[in-house]
Structures are given as C-alpha cells and as structure tokens.
Design a protein around this nucleic acid. Structure first.
Lengths: 146, 146
DNA sequence: AATCATCTTGACGTGCACGTCAACGCAGAC
DNA sequence: GTCTGCGTTGACGTGCACGTCAAGATGATT
C-alpha cells in the first residue's frame, strides 16, 4: 500500500508555501521525499511532517528546533535511554509552550482592554443626540507620559 | 513627580537583554529615553514599554508590529477616526493571537501524547520483576514510514 | 593628571529563513 | 522537432534582529 503521493506544486498550493521553502526544508533535513528521476514525490508521511513543521513555525520554533522534535518522534526505537531523553525534551517543550500561552493570554487581555477603551471613547463621542455618559476610566497599561 | 529612572545597565540586567538591543529598539522608534548629556536615562514609562516589547517578541511579533501596536496605544488622542482604526487593528491582533493559541494548545496536546507514549514504553521495559502490562497503543501522530 | 568604568556613535558582521534569479532536464502536446 | 509546463540544481541576495568590533566622550576615583 503506497498511499497518495503529491507533487511539489500540489503541496505548495495546499499549504500556501513556495517550492523554495520545501526545498529549504529538505536541505535542513526536515523532509526527505522520494524521487522519480529528478522530480520530488511527497508521500502522506511527508505531508504530515510538513503540517507539523508549519505549525511549529507558527508557534515560533526555529527549523532546528522543529527538526529536533521530529527526530525525537522518529528515533523512539532505540531503547530505554532514548525514550527517557525524548520524554525529558518533550516535557521541556511543553513547559515553554505553556509559558508562551500565558504571554499570549496576557496580550489578548490587554488588547481587549484597549478595544473596550476605544469603544468607550466612540460611544461617548458618537452620541450627539443621545449623550451616553460612560465614565472614561483610564484603562491604559502604559503610565502617562511624563 | 519624575518617578524612578534607570540607566541602560540597570534595564539590561533586569530584563536580560543587551544594551545593543535597547539601542536597536531606540533606532526602530520603540523607545525614546531622555538624555543626560550623552547618556540615556530611561523612565518608568520606557520600562513599561520595554516590558510590552519583550512580551510582544516572545509571542512572535516583529519589531514593526510591536511599534504599530505601541503607536496605537499612544495615538488615541486624535479623534473618532483614529479610535475606530485602532479598535479594528486591535481586534485583528486578538484574532491572530487566538489562532496562535490554538496552535500552541494543539502542540501541547501532541507533545503530551508523545510523553505518555514514552512513559508507556518505559513502564513496560523497566518492569523486570513487576511486569506492568500496559497496552502499547500507537499514539503517534505520524503515519508509519512507508 | 591619570585611570577607570560606563557610556556613546558608527559601521561592518552574522544567523536564520527563505527570495530570486540563471541555466538546465524532461515528458507530453502540437 | 520544438514548444510548453513543471521540475531541477546552484548560488547570490534580502530582511530582520541583533552581535561585534573600533574609537571616542564623560564623570567619578585615586
């Protein structure tokens, strides 16, 4: 059972990346597509790896970090020591991601405050015939200019 | 009331960045410390902005994006149109951050699966005198190699 | 006065993640 | 047979976020 395969064009269109990007990932050892003559031919597995790569990129991993994670996924057939090492690395990554999520949540909270501040202002100044009296609290996270 | 001020060294030590970084942020218009002669002197407000900058960096914003957000925070004294524009931009940022959080949550979930897979393996192979019979389910998100 | 730490301004260098050519291979359509 | 489309391999270029010097200014200390 060979499964579906993909040309480089198909993959780039589906994933929204350029062929240069795919070849770059191959240079970096993140993808290893088969060949038909010169042409690359990507398997389902390559596609799955690419999805992981792109999500890793979106969460801020470097290609080197992504490669390390992918290697950990696929090197888990070399005994107890390997598994212990992988487990430790995974746990480290999880902790880093949770810290990052905290930063994101805080950023979201602050931006939401900024939005309601803007909406408050707009509610006040848009009301020509119905002056909504909303208290213009200073929601700003930034200290006032000196 | 002037508030506390900081030398460049104090800020770099507190924030864990180099002075080059602070000067770079100044070149990019993210910070505008006062001067005493030549020496930069950072105010509370500069420090607060720096905290926002560093968190923005941690969540993956470029310096240009961070500058735009900071500008939006501080340009909200130019009428209704400005506020509407700011509100829209903030909402866009929030949506992007929420998408990013989703990616992070998915990554965490996958890494946790990988951890339990490793722990399962270790439980099986560590058990010499007490053979723990745990089903070695294939948790892998990656399709098997072809 | 000389030393020292701390700061300054250029300005070139670097690592990463690709972009952007140029030149060429190869299979099928006309 | 040549044209078109899709693919290939170098290899140099680019934008970003700083790193890393060199050379000098400034104020406090000995």
């Amino acid at each position: 059972m060979m499964g579906r395969t993909y040309s480089i064009r198909q993959l780039t269109k589906e994933m929204g990346v350029t062929s240069r990007t795919l070849r770059h990932y191959e240079d970096e050892g993140l993808l290893t597509p088969e060949r038909q003559g010169l042409a690359r031919i990507y398997s389902q597995r390559d596609r799955a790896r690419l999805l992981l790569i792109l999500r890793g990129r979106r969460v801020g991993f470097s290609l080197a970090e992504i490669r390390e994670i992918l290697d950990l996924y696929n090197s888990q057939d070399h005994g107890v020591a390997q598994f212990q090492h992988s487990r430790k690395k995974f746990i480290e990554r999880i902790a880093a991601l949770e810290a990052q999520r905290k930063d994101i949540d805080e950023s979201i909270a602050e931006l939401k405050l900024a939005v309601s501040r803007a909406e408050n202002f707009l509610a006040e100044h848009h009301a020509e015939q119905n002056p909504v009296r909303v208290k213009t609290t200073s929601y700003s996270v930034m200290p006032a200019a000196e």
